[in-house]
C-alpha cells in the first residue's frame, strides 16, 4: 500500500509538472472555457448529490469532493 501511494504521488507531481510545457491559452481565447458546460463540475449541486449517494453506497470516497455529511447508514 505504501509503495502504491508513493507511486501515485510521484505520478501526480508528474502530471502537475507537465502542465508547464503546454501551449499557453491566451485570455482572449477563453470564451468557450468560461461557459457553464465547461466548468468542472458544471453544477456543484449535482456533484454534491452524486457524491452523497455514492458515499452512502460504496466504500471509496473523495477525490472530487466529499459526501456532504451524514452517516451514510443505509
Amino acid at each position: 500500500m505504501k509503495r502504491t501511494m508513493i507511486l501515485i504521488v510521484v505520478a501526480a507531481l508528474g502530471v502537475a509538472a507537465s502542465g508547464c510545457n503546454l501551449t499557453r491559452v491566451q485570455a482572449y481565447e477563453r470564451e468557450d472555457l468560461s461557459k457553464r458546460s465547461m466548468q468542472l463540475p458544471p453544477s456543484a449541486l449535482d456533484a454534491r448529490l452524486d457524491d452523497h449517494t455514492y458515499f452512502s453506497k460504496e466504500a471509496a470516497r473523495g477525490g472530487r469532493g466529499g459526501g456532504g455529511g451524514g452517516c451514510g447508514c443505509n
Binding site: R36, A44, A47, R48, D51, G67, G68, G69
Partner: peptide, 10 residues
C-alpha cells in the same frame, strides 16, 4: 466540496 458545499462552482 470537501465539506459538501461547493455551490460556488455552479
Amino acid at each position: 466540496m470537501l465539506l459538501g458545499g461547493g455551490q460556488a462552482a455552479a
